[in-house]
Simulated assay, not measured.
Amino acid sequence: MSSDFSTREALDNCITETNISGLPAPYKGKVREVYQLDNDKLGIVVTDRISAFDYIMKQAIPFKGQILNQLAAFSFEKVKDIVATHVIDVPHPNVTIAKKCDPVPIEVVIRGYLTGHAWRVYKSGKRELCGVKLPEGLKEHDKFPTPILTPATKAQEGHDEDISEEEILSREIVEPALWNEIKNAAFALFEQGTKVAAEQGLILVDTKYEFGLYNGELTLIDEVHTTDSSRYFYLHGYEERQAQDEGQKQLSKEFLREWLMEHDFQGLEGQTLPDLPDEFRMEVYRRYAELFEMLTGKKFEPTLEKDFNKTLEGILK
């Protein structure tokens, strides 16, 4: 972290919500606050909130929004030749000006490895995920023979739910020709993300993509290949760690999920969301910053805002 800021300043200056006078109230997602600027343009503000198991944590992570937004901008630039993106401009570390798209109501998840949710399903004894047959004899973090597609519905409230391609088409959630275009784009994006990661000594383990239509054109929206949407392993030593049944160190939100599970929280009924200790919040920040620096090859330089809402007014109004 920049020596200009103390740990206390970083923790005390997290951006958890925005309020811009003169603009309609934003749509508030788990992390992003989205302002409609005109009929076809949005102002997307990435806050420092962090979520897991579909719950927003009570404490935010210093500079997470800046890291996430700038990493998304870097990754959108890397994939713009594969599919159109919603990015118009990135005028501030926390802000993206984007095309207003009609979202496709499916999260498109590509998995290259048996990790996270896929591993939890596999460990339970199931050998099918979202209609995809899983090979026998795999262990946690093994690579799949080829990447698999495991979509999920985008829930307005509560948990996203796994869904198969067959269900997407039979329920007419997405028209067949469009779904085929989405599927082809998603695998191409994953291939490109894998290449970029490998060049920087990382493995892109799995990721989610969100798509929309802008004037009828398929467009990649939300974020791409970031710490929130993707999971990464270190490439160096991966094979040795697998051979010795050692865990893989992850640059992702999985370690937050693991911390929560250790503290008896998985978002289940009757469980209490724990507070995140300050040192753990700083550890999360350091992991986000490390991935940013590894993927981009640039040092992360945080910007401390004295009056973020006033800054936003100057950008969005």
Rank of each mutant, 00 (worst) to 15 (best):
V196K: 07
L204Y: 05
L213D: 11
Q200H: 15
I203M: 08
E217R: 12
Q192T: 10
L220E: 00
I203C: 03
V196I: 15
L204H: 03
E191L: 10
G201I: 09
F211K: 10
T219E: 02
Q192E: 15
L202D: 00
E191T: 14
G193H: 07
L202F: 03
N215E: 15
I203S: 00
A198V: 01
A198P: 02
K208D: 02
T207Q: 07
G212E: 10
Q200L: 01
Y214F: 15
T194Y: 09
G193Y: 10
Y209D: 00
E191Q: 15
L202A: 01
E223M: 03
T194V: 07
F211Q: 09
E223W: 08
E223P: 02
V196Q: 04
L213P: 09
T219I: 05
Y214G: 03
G212M: 13
L204R: 12
V196R: 11
G201Q: 06
L213R: 11
Q200A: 12
F211R: 11
D206K: 14
V196N: 04
Y209V: 03
T194A: 13
E191K: 15
L213I: 06
N215Y: 14
Q200R: 15
T219W: 04
Y214Q: 13
K208Q: 13
L218P: 08
T207P: 08
G216S: 11
V196C: 05
L218A: 08
G212H: 12
E191G: 09
L204C: 04
L204K: 13
V196H: 07
L213Y: 10
N215S: 15
K208G: 05
L204S: 01
E217F: 06
T219R: 01
E199N: 11
I203E: 05
A198N: 07
G201H: 05
K195W: 09
G193M: 06
N215W: 06
T219G: 03
Q200T: 07
L220T: 00
E199S: 12
G201V: 07
V205D: 02
D222N: 05
G193L: 07
I221R: 02
G193D: 00
E210I: 08
Q192N: 14
G201W: 09
T207Y: 14
L220M: 10
L202S: 01
N215D: 15
E199F: 08
L220Q: 06
T207F: 13
G216C: 12
G216K: 14
A197Q: 01
I203Y: 12
E223A: 06
L220F: 10
E217M: 14
F211A: 09
Y209P: 04
G212A: 10
A198S: 14
Y209L: 09
L202P: 01
